[in-house]
Design a protein around this nucleic acid. Structure first.
Lengths: 287, 287
DNA sequence: TATCATTTGTACGTATGTATT
DNA sequence: GAATACATACGTACAAATGAT
């Protein structure tokens, strides 16, 4: 969806020489066709290194001069990127002393609890809360969600936000077969995951869960809802759950903040060779 | 100097006025320096309206004048946003006739062949080629790849680039147990996938394939190798394959260009409820 | 205390892309 | 389409704070 990132003729000396300045960025495109300013691009890479533990709290970051010559950008560009991160509280800068990591804003990647909340189709951990943004009855299933099953006639459309420890991490736009939803206890969709509700209260046994995962840049609506920078990396998952007859009982789009997303999968080797119908993702619930 | 990060005037008007040609877009776009150009943010809002079906193929979009005065932006800004979408093939503009939706662009993205090349651990399609960048013998397995199995003593480290139709889409940095690799035919790693080689020539039956997927912004090394813009979205997959004894026979990091990545998974419902050890991704090889 | 190299902060001039009128 | 204003980004230079000599 988020249309091809402009494949600008990016190419540069790809050496990893320590200390040797690597001439770099196309050096002529200020904002470039990407439309995202250079200091913001730099900021998101630095933010990522702090989030994934490459730099830890207290570590000293490269000097402005080092980064500038390594990347082939002006010092003011690095300064703006650092300024952005400082405004977010991630780093501190002091004259003569350098730039240091002040906080990680969240440990080294998503916590095990959040990983389980994302990967386990049934479990609804206490820290997970669901904020329903909007519901509409009597909707038809969009054509893009038909694939892989036959559509029912009427769906309930639900737009909702998933939060973990009160922090939004996933924006959802999904369709549940109305006849199935009407069998649920009231307000159940706020406190349980749909796969569990359909297994518990559905009219027919379930068949398959299809997932298609892509990555992209946050569009406006997603950025606003997730409290996340525009154009920052996001994961997009399309999920479709069918019953044994191949009828789609629910299908929808899930957008995850890039810094709060991990997909875990495990594939036993015997399934691996039974391709195509093979790989097996999974997350251990705890530890 | 620079403004606070997330809390831009976030508010997403979310009404769904059916039939009224001119929709209520967010009343205004964020003011002040956001680091992202205005016309791109506007393009993002419009792109989503098309993607989620608010405007369908053939529908007429508001005139430049209408949009400009509604949003309080200059006409040229709207023109640039329309130009962007036109370049993506989403809309067409004709003098005197207006601007219309040409496509929802939903089908775009990686071809089925590329999807299979990414998702099938065994298949090596003709269009796929492997460029070995570097190999080093007698390496120890890095600590970050230990998890989920016991490490062997000596590994062959391979850095390589995967191309599809001569276009790079994946950068790989992986470790193969040396004693297993030395059983392979010469240069086999350039023409077959490792899982297949290990199944064919390995000393022990295979156990499990673990995959951990995250998203992020392209670092310089990845951007250069993949011929992709710095800080553009990438998928990062860590794969670990063990034999039946739990020994890691290969493990490595895979970085995919965001615009050339799709992960497909299928989970039979009975496995779904055997959590944790459950979900099943898969891609049909053809069609 | 004084000096020095390092590093962040500020400033000026210029060029380009963006956005408004 | 033209004129204007602004933010980004480059290069350069200098001031101020820090830590070590």
């Amino acid at each position: 969806m988020s249309a091809a990132w402009p494949p600008r003729g990016a190419r540069a000396a790809a050496r990893e020489g320590e200390g040797s300045p690597v001439s770099a960025l196309p050096a002529s495109l200020p904002a470039g066709p990407s439309g995202v300013t250079r200091y913001l691009q730099l900021a998101s890479v630095l933010r990522q290194r702090i989030a994934n533990g490459h730099w830890r709290v207290g570590d000293r970051l490269p000097t402005v001069q080092q980064l500038a010559s390594e990347l082939g950008v002006a010092r003011i560009t690095v300064r703006q990127a650092y300024g952005r991160l400082a405004a977010e509280g991630l780093i501190t800068t002091h004259r003569g002393r350098g730039t240091h990591v002040a906080s990680t804003a969240q440990g080294r990647g998503p916590s095990p609890a959040l990983r389980a909340a994302i990967n386990d189709p049934l479990q609804h951990p206490p820290a997970l809360s669901i904020r329903i943004l909007d519901t509409q009855r009597d909707q038809a299933l969009p054509a893009t969600l038909h694939e892989g099953g036959s559509a029912d006639t009427q769906y309930l459309r639900i737009r909702k936000l998933h939060l973990h420890d009160a922090q939004p991490f996933c924006l959802v736009d999904l369709y549940v077969a109305q006849r199935e939803h009407d069998r649920f206890p009231p307000r159940a969709i706020e406190h349980a995951k749909l796969a569990g509700l359909l297994r518990e209260h559905g009219s027919r046994p379930l068949g398959h869960l299809h997932q298609t995962m892509t990555v992209g840049a946050a569009e406006r609506a997603q950025a606003d809802a997730l409290d996340y920078p525009f154009a920052a990396p996001v994961a997009h998952v399309v999920r479709r759950l069918t019953d044994v007859d191949g009828r789609i009982v629910y299908a929808g789009d899930f957008w995850y903040r890039g810094d709060r997303f991990v997909l875990d999968t495990v594939l036993p080797a015997d399934l691996l060779f039974a391709y195509p119908l093979a790989v097996v993702p999974a997350t251990r619930s705890e530890t």
